[in-house]
Design a protein around this nucleic acid. Structure first.
Lengths: 252, 252
DNA sequence: TAGTGGTCTAGACCACTCC
DNA sequence: GAGTGGTCTAGACCACTAC
Protein backbone atom coordinates (compact mmCIF):
# COMPACT_ATOMS: atom_id res chain seq x y z
CA UNK A 1 0.00 0.00 0.00
CA UNK A 2 2.92 2.31 0.40
CA UNK A 3 1.24 4.26 3.16
CA UNK A 4 2.90 4.50 6.51
CA UNK A 5 0.79 4.29 9.59
CA UNK A 6 0.84 7.80 10.93
CA UNK A 7 -0.30 8.55 14.43
CA UNK A 8 -2.19 5.30 14.63
CA UNK A 9 -1.81 5.58 18.39
CA UNK A 10 -1.89 9.33 18.92
CA UNK A 11 -0.29 9.97 22.26
CA UNK A 12 -2.06 12.69 24.20
CA UNK A 13 -0.15 15.94 24.22
CA UNK A 14 0.05 16.14 28.00
CA UNK A 15 1.53 12.67 28.12
CA UNK A 16 4.20 13.53 25.61
CA UNK A 17 4.86 16.81 27.42
CA UNK A 18 5.27 14.96 30.68
CA UNK A 19 7.89 12.72 29.10
CA UNK A 20 9.78 15.62 27.56
CA UNK A 21 9.77 17.71 30.72
CA UNK A 22 10.61 14.69 32.82
CA UNK A 23 13.70 14.03 30.74
CA UNK A 24 14.68 17.68 30.95
CA UNK A 25 14.43 17.50 34.73
CA UNK A 26 16.93 14.67 34.75
CA UNK A 27 19.43 16.31 32.50
CA UNK A 28 19.11 20.06 32.77
CA UNK A 29 17.88 20.87 36.25
CA UNK A 30 19.11 20.61 39.80
CA UNK A 31 16.99 19.78 42.82
CA UNK A 32 15.39 22.96 44.11
CA UNK A 33 15.80 24.85 40.87
CA UNK A 34 12.85 26.96 39.77
CA UNK A 35 11.24 26.17 36.43
CA UNK A 36 9.95 28.89 34.10
CA UNK A 37 6.39 29.83 34.98
CA UNK A 38 3.43 28.00 33.53
CA UNK A 39 2.48 30.66 31.02
CA UNK A 40 5.95 30.74 29.60
CA UNK A 41 6.31 26.96 29.51
CA UNK A 42 2.98 26.64 27.75
CA UNK A 43 4.03 29.19 25.15
CA UNK A 44 7.39 27.52 24.71
CA UNK A 45 5.78 24.15 24.00
CA UNK A 46 2.97 25.65 21.95
CA UNK A 47 0.12 24.33 24.07
CA UNK A 48 -2.61 25.83 26.18
CA UNK A 49 -1.81 26.43 29.79
CA UNK A 50 -4.38 23.83 30.91
CA UNK A 51 -2.62 21.18 28.86
CA UNK A 52 0.74 22.06 30.31
CA UNK A 53 -0.75 21.95 33.78
CA UNK A 54 -1.99 18.42 33.16
CA UNK A 55 1.59 17.37 32.52
CA UNK A 56 2.92 19.22 35.56
CA UNK A 57 0.22 17.67 37.74
CA UNK A 58 1.39 14.20 36.78
CA UNK A 59 4.99 15.06 37.48
CA UNK A 60 4.00 16.45 40.86
CA UNK A 61 2.01 13.29 41.56
CA UNK A 62 5.15 11.31 40.89
CA UNK A 63 7.08 13.45 43.32
CA UNK A 64 9.31 15.04 40.72
CA UNK A 65 8.00 18.59 40.97
CA UNK A 66 6.75 20.80 43.72
CA UNK A 67 4.39 23.66 43.00
CA UNK A 68 3.58 26.47 45.40
CA UNK A 69 1.09 29.21 44.71
CA UNK A 70 2.66 32.63 44.63
CA UNK A 71 6.13 31.13 44.44
CA UNK A 72 6.62 28.87 41.48
CA UNK A 73 7.42 25.34 40.39
CA UNK A 74 10.59 23.74 41.68
CA UNK A 75 12.36 20.47 41.11
CA UNK A 76 11.53 18.22 44.05
CA UNK A 77 14.14 16.27 46.01
CA UNK A 78 13.81 12.49 45.99
CA UNK A 79 10.99 11.20 48.14
CA UNK A 80 11.86 10.58 51.74
CA UNK A 81 11.46 7.05 53.00
CA UNK A 82 9.20 6.95 56.04
CA UNK A 83 9.22 3.80 58.11
CA UNK A 84 5.75 2.47 58.78
CA UNK A 85 6.75 -1.11 59.37
CA UNK A 86 4.01 -2.88 61.17
CA UNK A 87 6.30 -4.89 63.38
CA UNK A 88 7.34 -2.31 65.94
CA UNK A 89 4.89 -4.02 68.24
CA UNK A 90 4.41 -0.88 70.16
CA UNK A 91 1.53 1.34 70.99
CA UNK A 92 1.48 4.67 69.24
CA UNK A 93 3.60 7.12 71.18
CA UNK A 94 5.64 4.44 72.91
CA UNK A 95 9.38 4.50 72.43
CA UNK A 96 11.31 6.76 70.17
CA UNK A 97 9.52 7.91 67.08
CA UNK A 98 8.91 11.10 65.20
CA UNK A 99 5.30 11.66 66.18
CA UNK A 100 4.12 14.57 68.23
CA UNK A 101 0.75 14.67 69.99
CA UNK A 102 -0.96 17.98 69.39
CA UNK A 103 -4.50 17.67 70.63
CA UNK A 104 -7.30 15.46 71.87
CA UNK A 105 -11.03 15.80 71.43
CA UNK A 106 -14.08 13.67 71.99
CA UNK A 107 -16.14 12.73 68.96
CA UNK A 108 -18.11 10.01 67.23
CA UNK A 109 -15.85 8.41 64.63
CA UNK A 110 -16.80 8.33 60.95
CA UNK A 111 -18.59 5.25 59.70
CA UNK A 112 -15.51 3.66 58.16
CA UNK A 113 -13.71 3.78 61.50
CA UNK A 114 -16.76 2.59 63.38
CA UNK A 115 -16.74 -0.61 61.37
CA UNK A 116 -13.27 -1.34 62.72
CA UNK A 117 -14.21 -0.32 66.28
CA UNK A 118 -17.31 -2.49 66.19
CA UNK A 119 -17.26 -3.23 69.88
CA UNK A 120 -17.97 0.27 71.01
CA UNK A 121 -21.66 0.81 70.49
CA UNK A 122 -24.18 1.53 73.17
CA UNK A 123 -25.68 -1.88 74.00
CA UNK A 124 -29.08 -0.35 74.67
CA UNK A 125 -29.60 1.82 71.62
CA UNK A 126 -26.96 0.48 69.25
CA UNK A 127 -25.85 4.04 68.66
CA UNK A 128 -22.16 4.80 68.34
CA UNK A 129 -20.51 6.34 71.35
CA UNK A 130 -17.98 9.14 71.21
CA UNK A 131 -14.34 8.19 71.63
CA UNK A 132 -11.12 10.03 72.34
CA UNK A 133 -9.66 11.38 69.13
CA UNK A 134 -5.96 12.04 69.54
CA UNK A 135 -4.39 14.17 66.85
CA UNK A 136 -0.71 13.72 66.08
CA UNK A 137 1.75 15.03 63.56
CA UNK A 138 4.78 13.27 62.17
CA UNK A 139 7.81 15.14 60.94
CA UNK A 140 10.96 14.01 59.19
CA UNK A 141 13.91 16.20 58.42
CA UNK A 142 12.01 19.14 59.81
CA UNK A 143 9.12 18.68 57.42
CA UNK A 144 5.60 17.56 58.29
CA UNK A 145 4.90 14.32 56.44
CA UNK A 146 1.82 12.91 58.10
CA UNK A 147 -1.21 13.83 60.17
CA UNK A 148 -2.98 11.20 62.21
CA UNK A 149 -6.23 10.76 64.02
CA UNK A 150 -6.11 8.05 66.65
CA UNK A 151 -9.50 6.82 67.77
CA UNK A 152 -9.45 5.43 71.31
CA UNK A 153 -12.65 4.09 72.88
CA UNK A 154 -13.09 5.20 76.46
CA UNK A 155 -13.04 1.54 77.49
CA UNK A 156 -9.44 1.24 76.29
CA UNK A 157 -8.18 3.82 78.75
CA UNK A 158 -10.13 3.13 81.94
CA UNK A 159 -7.41 4.56 84.15
CA UNK A 160 -7.50 7.99 82.55
CA UNK A 161 -8.03 10.73 85.08
CA UNK A 162 -11.28 12.60 84.68
CA UNK A 163 -10.92 14.04 81.16
CA UNK A 164 -12.23 17.38 82.28
CA UNK A 165 -9.06 18.10 84.21
CA UNK A 166 -6.80 17.82 81.17
CA UNK A 167 -7.03 19.37 77.74
CA UNK A 168 -5.21 19.69 74.45
CA UNK A 169 -1.73 18.20 74.19
CA UNK A 170 -1.67 17.19 77.83
CA UNK A 171 -4.84 15.13 77.45
CA UNK A 172 -3.49 13.63 74.25
CA UNK A 173 -0.35 12.50 76.01
CA UNK A 174 -2.44 11.19 78.88
CA UNK A 175 -4.47 8.99 76.57
CA UNK A 176 -1.33 7.65 74.90
CA UNK A 177 0.22 6.90 78.28
CA UNK A 178 -2.83 4.96 79.39
CA UNK A 179 -2.90 3.04 76.14
CA UNK A 180 0.59 1.79 76.81
CA UNK A 181 -0.70 0.02 79.91
CA UNK A 182 -2.65 -2.47 77.78
CA UNK A 183 -1.01 -5.62 76.45
CA UNK A 184 -0.62 -5.15 72.69
CA UNK A 185 -1.39 -8.39 70.91
CA UNK A 186 -1.09 -7.38 67.32
CA UNK A 187 -1.90 -4.85 64.69
CA UNK A 188 -2.97 -4.95 61.13
CA UNK A 189 -2.55 -2.27 58.61
CA UNK A 190 -3.84 -1.12 55.24
CA UNK A 191 -2.58 1.46 52.77
CA UNK A 192 -4.73 3.18 50.20
CA UNK A 193 -4.88 6.32 48.14
CA UNK A 194 -7.01 9.21 49.34
CA UNK A 195 -7.31 12.94 49.13
CA UNK A 196 -6.47 15.20 52.02
CA UNK A 197 -9.30 16.53 54.14
CA UNK A 198 -9.17 20.27 54.67
CA UNK A 199 -7.72 20.09 58.19
CA UNK A 200 -5.08 17.51 57.34
CA UNK A 201 -4.14 19.43 54.22
CA UNK A 202 -3.51 22.53 56.28
CA UNK A 203 -1.20 20.74 58.68
CA UNK A 204 0.68 19.16 55.80
CA UNK A 205 1.03 22.48 53.98
CA UNK A 206 -0.97 21.25 51.02
CA UNK A 207 -4.21 22.23 49.36
CA UNK A 208 -7.39 20.34 50.22
CA UNK A 209 -7.76 17.30 48.03
CA UNK A 210 -4.04 16.77 47.64
CA UNK A 211 -3.21 13.10 47.10
CA UNK A 212 -2.29 11.29 50.28
CA UNK A 213 -1.48 7.76 51.31
CA UNK A 214 -3.90 6.74 54.02
CA UNK A 215 -2.50 4.22 56.48
CA UNK A 216 -5.14 2.62 58.66
CA UNK A 217 -3.92 0.64 61.65
CA UNK A 218 -5.94 -1.48 64.02
CA UNK A 219 -4.41 -2.11 67.44
CA UNK A 220 -5.55 -5.34 69.05
CA UNK A 221 -5.66 -6.04 72.77
CA UNK A 222 -7.66 -8.58 74.71
CA UNK A 223 -9.18 -9.89 71.51
CA UNK A 224 -10.69 -6.49 70.80
CA UNK A 225 -9.79 -3.53 68.65
CA UNK A 226 -8.41 -1.23 71.31
CA UNK A 227 -7.63 1.67 69.00
CA UNK A 228 -7.70 2.66 65.37
CA UNK A 229 -5.25 5.02 63.73
CA UNK A 230 -5.90 6.80 60.45
CA UNK A 231 -2.71 8.47 59.27
CA UNK A 232 -2.51 10.49 56.07
CA UNK A 233 0.94 10.79 54.51
CA UNK A 234 1.83 13.30 51.81
CA UNK A 235 1.88 11.15 48.69
CA UNK A 236 4.05 13.57 46.76
CA UNK A 237 6.98 13.60 49.16
CA UNK A 238 6.76 10.25 50.94
CA UNK A 239 7.70 6.68 50.24
CA UNK A 240 6.35 4.35 52.90
CA UNK A 241 8.88 1.72 53.85
CA UNK A 242 8.32 -1.57 55.58
CA UNK A 243 11.72 -2.23 57.05
CA UNK A 244 13.91 -5.22 56.50
CA UNK A 245 12.21 -8.31 57.80
CA UNK A 246 15.37 -10.34 57.80
CA UNK A 247 15.28 -10.25 61.59
CA UNK A 248 11.75 -11.55 61.89
CA UNK A 249 10.45 -15.04 62.21
CA UNK A 250 6.99 -16.43 62.04
CA UNK A 251 5.81 -17.75 65.40
CA UNK A 252 5.41 -21.49 65.06
CA UNK B 1 -19.73 45.31 64.10
CA UNK B 2 -22.83 43.44 63.13
CA UNK B 3 -21.27 42.09 59.97
CA UNK B 4 -21.10 38.38 59.52
CA UNK B 5 -18.03 36.90 57.94
CA UNK B 6 -19.25 35.82 54.53
CA UNK B 7 -17.16 33.51 52.40
CA UNK B 8 -14.03 34.43 54.27
CA UNK B 9 -12.73 31.02 53.26
CA UNK B 10 -14.33 30.56 49.85
CA UNK B 11 -14.39 26.86 49.17
CA UNK B 12 -13.53 26.00 45.58
CA UNK B 13 -16.58 24.97 43.59
CA UNK B 14 -15.17 21.59 42.66
CA UNK B 15 -14.52 20.83 46.31
CA UNK B 16 -18.03 21.68 47.28
CA UNK B 17 -19.34 19.68 44.33
CA UNK B 18 -17.32 16.70 45.39
CA UNK B 19 -18.87 16.83 48.84
CA UNK B 20 -22.39 17.16 47.50
CA UNK B 21 -22.02 14.37 44.98
CA UNK B 22 -20.24 12.19 47.51
CA UNK B 23 -23.16 12.52 49.90
CA UNK B 24 -25.60 11.77 47.11
CA UNK B 25 -23.66 8.59 46.33
CA UNK B 26 -24.12 7.44 49.90
CA UNK B 27 -27.81 8.11 50.07
CA UNK B 28 -29.29 7.93 46.60
CA UNK B 29 -27.24 5.49 44.56
CA UNK B 30 -26.48 1.81 44.56
CA UNK B 31 -23.14 0.24 43.66
CA UNK B 32 -22.95 -0.19 39.91
CA UNK B 33 -25.60 2.39 39.17
CA UNK B 34 -24.91 4.74 36.28
CA UNK B 35 -24.77 8.46 37.00
CA UNK B 36 -26.16 11.05 34.59
CA UNK B 37 -23.58 12.01 32.01
CA UNK B 38 -21.09 14.79 32.61
CA UNK B 39 -22.81 17.37 30.43
CA UNK B 40 -26.09 16.90 32.21
CA UNK B 41 -24.52 16.88 35.68
CA UNK B 42 -22.63 20.07 34.88
CA UNK B 43 -25.83 21.74 33.71
CA UNK B 44 -27.72 20.51 36.74
CA UNK B 45 -25.16 22.02 39.10
CA UNK B 46 -24.71 25.14 37.01
CA UNK B 47 -20.96 24.74 36.45
CA UNK B 48 -18.70 24.21 33.47
CA UNK B 49 -18.03 20.65 32.50
CA UNK B 50 -14.34 21.01 33.38
CA UNK B 51 -15.24 22.00 36.91
CA UNK B 52 -17.56 19.07 37.30
CA UNK B 53 -14.87 16.77 35.96
CA UNK B 54 -12.47 18.01 38.62
CA UNK B 55 -14.92 16.83 41.27
CA UNK B 56 -15.49 13.48 39.56
CA UNK B 57 -11.76 12.95 39.24
CA UNK B 58 -11.33 13.31 42.98
CA UNK B 59 -14.15 10.90 43.67
CA UNK B 60 -12.62 8.42 41.26
CA UNK B 61 -9.26 8.87 42.97
CA UNK B 62 -10.94 7.96 46.24
CA UNK B 63 -12.36 4.84 44.69
CA UNK B 64 -15.98 5.98 44.86
CA UNK B 65 -16.61 6.30 41.14
CA UNK B 66 -15.53 4.46 38.05
CA UNK B 67 -15.50 6.16 34.67
CA UNK B 68 -15.24 4.41 31.35
CA UNK B 69 -15.03 6.16 28.04
CA UNK B 70 -17.94 5.40 25.78
CA UNK B 71 -19.89 3.88 28.64
CA UNK B 72 -20.43 6.29 31.49
CA UNK B 73 -19.76 6.91 35.15
CA UNK B 74 -20.79 4.26 37.64
CA UNK B 75 -20.76 3.97 41.40
CA UNK B 76 -17.74 1.89 42.34
CA UNK B 77 -17.88 -1.03 44.75
CA UNK B 78 -15.76 -0.74 47.91
CA UNK B 79 -12.06 -1.20 47.33
CA UNK B 80 -10.83 -4.75 47.49
CA UNK B 81 -8.23 -5.54 50.12
CA UNK B 82 -5.15 -7.08 48.55
CA UNK B 83 -2.71 -8.78 50.86
CA UNK B 84 0.85 -7.63 50.35
CA UNK B 85 2.10 -8.52 53.77
CA UNK B 86 5.83 -8.67 53.72
CA UNK B 87 6.11 -11.65 56.03
CA UNK B 88 5.17 -14.46 53.71
CA UNK B 89 8.86 -15.24 53.62
CA UNK B 90 8.50 -16.76 50.26
CA UNK B 91 9.96 -16.16 46.88
CA UNK B 92 7.60 -14.72 44.34
CA UNK B 93 5.67 -17.52 42.72
CA UNK B 94 6.18 -19.93 45.58
CA UNK B 95 3.13 -21.36 47.24
CA UNK B 96 -0.45 -20.42 46.60
CA UNK B 97 -1.01 -16.89 45.49
CA UNK B 98 -2.94 -15.07 42.85
CA UNK B 99 -0.04 -14.17 40.57
CA UNK B 100 0.33 -15.48 37.06
CA UNK B 101 3.58 -15.36 35.11
CA UNK B 102 2.98 -14.10 31.62
CA UNK B 103 6.36 -13.44 30.05
CA UNK B 104 10.07 -13.09 30.48
CA UNK B 105 12.52 -10.90 28.64
CA UNK B 106 16.13 -9.83 29.01
CA UNK B 107 16.78 -6.14 29.57
CA UNK B 108 18.85 -3.59 31.44
CA UNK B 109 16.77 -2.38 34.41
CA UNK B 110 15.92 1.30 34.82
CA UNK B 111 18.22 3.37 36.99
CA UNK B 112 16.00 3.26 40.07
CA UNK B 113 16.05 -0.54 40.04
CA UNK B 114 19.77 -0.64 39.33
CA UNK B 115 20.41 1.22 42.56
CA UNK B 116 18.78 -1.65 44.44
CA UNK B 117 20.56 -4.30 42.37
CA UNK B 118 23.90 -2.60 42.87
CA UNK B 119 25.84 -5.84 42.80
CA UNK B 120 25.16 -6.62 39.20
CA UNK B 121 27.46 -4.41 37.20
CA UNK B 122 30.16 -5.55 34.88
CA UNK B 123 33.33 -5.43 37.00
CA UNK B 124 35.44 -4.42 34.01
CA UNK B 125 33.45 -1.54 32.56
CA UNK B 126 31.06 -0.74 35.41
CA UNK B 127 28.23 -0.87 32.93
CA UNK B 128 24.93 -2.39 33.95
CA UNK B 129 24.25 -5.89 32.71
CA UNK B 130 20.92 -7.09 31.40
CA UNK B 131 18.83 -9.21 33.76
CA UNK B 132 15.82 -11.47 33.43
CA UNK B 133 12.65 -9.42 33.59
CA UNK B 134 9.72 -11.60 34.54
CA UNK B 135 6.32 -10.09 33.95
CA UNK B 136 3.44 -11.19 36.13
CA UNK B 137 -0.19 -10.25 36.63
CA UNK B 138 -2.21 -10.45 39.78
CA UNK B 139 -5.96 -10.95 39.74
CA UNK B 140 -8.53 -10.92 42.51
CA UNK B 141 -12.17 -11.76 42.06
CA UNK B 142 -11.60 -12.13 38.35
CA UNK B 143 -10.22 -8.62 38.02
CA UNK B 144 -6.64 -7.62 37.25
CA UNK B 145 -5.35 -5.57 40.15
CA UNK B 146 -1.60 -5.47 39.67
CA UNK B 147 1.14 -5.80 37.07
CA UNK B 148 4.65 -6.64 38.15
CA UNK B 149 8.12 -6.61 36.72
CA UNK B 150 10.50 -8.86 38.57
CA UNK B 151 14.17 -8.15 37.91
CA UNK B 152 16.37 -11.21 38.39
CA UNK B 153 20.12 -10.98 37.80
CA UNK B 154 21.50 -13.94 35.88
CA UNK B 155 23.68 -14.71 38.88
CA UNK B 156 20.60 -15.42 40.99
CA UNK B 157 19.47 -18.27 38.77
CA UNK B 158 22.68 -20.08 37.82
CA UNK B 159 20.90 -23.38 37.29
CA UNK B 160 18.59 -22.06 34.61
CA UNK B 161 18.77 -24.09 31.44
CA UNK B 162 20.14 -22.21 28.46
CA UNK B 163 17.62 -19.38 28.10
CA UNK B 164 17.43 -19.84 24.39
CA UNK B 165 15.54 -23.10 24.76
CA UNK B 166 12.65 -21.53 26.64
CA UNK B 167 10.54 -18.47 25.94
CA UNK B 168 7.57 -16.50 27.16
CA UNK B 169 5.57 -17.91 30.05
CA UNK B 170 7.62 -21.09 30.19
CA UNK B 171 10.84 -19.13 30.66
CA UNK B 172 9.14 -16.94 33.26
CA UNK B 173 8.10 -19.98 35.26
CA UNK B 174 11.57 -21.45 34.85
CA UNK B 175 13.17 -18.36 36.36
CA UNK B 176 10.74 -18.37 39.28
CA UNK B 177 11.41 -22.06 39.90
CA UNK B 178 15.15 -21.48 40.00
CA UNK B 179 14.72 -18.53 42.34
CA UNK B 180 13.00 -20.79 44.84
CA UNK B 181 16.20 -22.80 45.16
CA UNK B 182 17.94 -19.92 46.89
CA UNK B 183 17.66 -19.44 50.64
CA UNK B 184 15.47 -16.38 51.21
CA UNK B 185 16.87 -14.35 54.06
CA UNK B 186 14.57 -11.39 54.09
CA UNK B 187 12.77 -8.79 52.09
CA UNK B 188 12.07 -5.16 52.45
CA UNK B 189 9.33 -3.26 50.84
CA UNK B 190 8.25 0.26 50.01
CA UNK B 191 4.96 1.72 48.82
CA UNK B 192 4.60 4.96 46.94
CA UNK B 193 2.27 6.73 44.57
CA UNK B 194 2.98 6.61 40.87
CA UNK B 195 1.28 6.85 37.53
CA UNK B 196 0.83 3.86 35.31
CA UNK B 197 3.21 3.33 32.43
CA UNK B 198 1.53 2.68 29.12
CA UNK B 199 2.07 -1.08 29.17
CA UNK B 200 0.99 -1.55 32.76
CA UNK B 201 -2.05 0.64 32.18
CA UNK B 202 -3.13 -1.56 29.32
CA UNK B 203 -2.92 -4.73 31.38
CA UNK B 204 -4.84 -3.08 34.20
CA UNK B 205 -7.51 -1.77 31.84
CA UNK B 206 -6.72 1.82 32.70
CA UNK B 207 -5.50 4.83 30.76
CA UNK B 208 -1.80 5.69 30.82
CA UNK B 209 -1.02 7.90 33.77
CA UNK B 210 -3.72 6.43 35.97
CA UNK B 211 -2.76 6.59 39.64
CA UNK B 212 -1.18 3.42 40.94
CA UNK B 213 0.41 2.25 44.15
CA UNK B 214 3.92 1.11 43.38
CA UNK B 215 5.18 -1.63 45.67
CA UNK B 216 8.92 -2.21 45.44
CA UNK B 217 10.28 -5.33 47.06
CA UNK B 218 13.88 -6.34 47.52
CA UNK B 219 14.55 -10.06 48.01
CA UNK B 220 17.68 -10.79 49.98
CA UNK B 221 19.75 -13.93 49.75
CA UNK B 222 23.36 -14.61 50.62
CA UNK B 223 23.76 -11.01 51.79
CA UNK B 224 22.90 -9.77 48.33
CA UNK B 225 19.82 -8.44 46.61
CA UNK B 226 18.84 -11.51 44.65
CA UNK B 227 15.79 -9.98 42.96
CA UNK B 228 13.78 -6.79 42.84
CA UNK B 229 10.06 -6.66 42.22
CA UNK B 230 8.24 -3.53 41.08
CA UNK B 231 4.50 -4.10 41.27
CA UNK B 232 1.94 -1.49 40.30
CA UNK B 233 -1.49 -1.82 41.89
CA UNK B 234 -4.57 0.01 40.67
CA UNK B 235 -4.95 2.77 43.23
CA UNK B 236 -8.62 3.30 42.50
CA UNK B 237 -9.77 -0.21 43.25
CA UNK B 238 -7.18 -1.56 45.69
CA UNK B 239 -6.44 -1.27 49.36
CA UNK B 240 -3.12 -2.85 50.23
CA UNK B 241 -3.31 -4.84 53.44
CA UNK B 242 -0.50 -5.96 55.68
CA UNK B 243 -2.08 -8.86 57.47
CA UNK B 244 -2.43 -9.36 61.17
CA UNK B 245 0.95 -9.55 62.82
CA UNK B 246 -0.44 -11.02 66.02
CA UNK B 247 1.31 -14.25 65.13
CA UNK B 248 4.70 -12.67 64.62
CA UNK B 249 7.51 -12.09 67.03
CA UNK B 250 10.67 -10.13 66.72
CA UNK B 251 13.72 -12.34 66.79
CA UNK B 252 15.33 -10.92 69.88
C1' DT C 1 -24.83 6.28 14.46
C1' DA C 2 -25.66 8.20 18.91
C1' DG C 3 -23.86 8.93 23.25
C1' DT C 4 -20.15 8.63 26.48
C1' DG C 5 -15.88 10.22 28.70
C1' DG C 6 -11.00 12.17 27.25
C1' DT C 7 -8.36 15.95 25.35
C1' DC C 8 -7.54 20.68 24.19
C1' DT C 9 -8.08 25.67 23.62
C1' DA C 10 -7.96 30.76 24.83
C1' DG C 11 -9.30 33.32 27.55
C1' DA C 12 -10.68 35.37 32.60
C1' DC C 13 -10.29 36.17 37.44
C1' DC C 14 -8.74 34.82 42.17
C1' DA C 15 -5.51 33.72 46.21
C1' DC C 16 -1.19 33.79 47.59
C1' DT C 17 3.88 35.18 48.21
C1' DC C 18 7.36 38.35 48.05
C1' DC C 19 9.31 42.74 47.53
C1' DG D 1 2.11 45.90 43.13
C1' DA D 2 4.07 42.35 40.34
C1' DG D 3 4.28 37.66 39.56
C1' DT D 4 3.05 33.01 40.67
C1' DG D 5 0.04 28.95 40.69
C1' DG D 6 -5.22 27.76 41.44
C1' DT D 7 -9.91 28.00 39.73
C1' DC D 8 -13.37 28.50 36.25
C1' DT D 9 -15.67 29.16 31.79
C1' DA D 10 -17.71 27.92 27.16
C1' DG D 11 -16.81 26.15 23.76
C1' DA D 12 -14.54 22.34 20.19
C1' DC D 13 -13.11 17.93 18.56
C1' DC D 14 -11.54 13.05 19.36
C1' DA D 15 -11.66 8.00 20.86
C1' DC D 16 -14.31 4.65 22.38
C1' DT D 17 -18.60 1.72 23.31
C1' DA D 18 -22.84 -0.05 22.26
C1' DC D 19 -26.70 -0.57 19.50
Amino acid sequence: MGTTQLESVPEPKYWHLKTVIGEALDSEFEVGEILPNERELAARFGVARATLRQALEQLELEGRLQRRRGVGTTVAPPRVGVDVSTVQHRWPGAGEDSWQAVDCASAVPPAAVLRLLDTDTDPATGAARPVHVVRRLRATHGQAVAAEQLYVPLASVPGLVAPGTLAGPALARGVLRELEQLPLEGQDRAVELGSARADDAKELDRLPGAPVLVVTTRYLSGGRTAAVSVATYRADTCRLTFGDVGDLQIAS
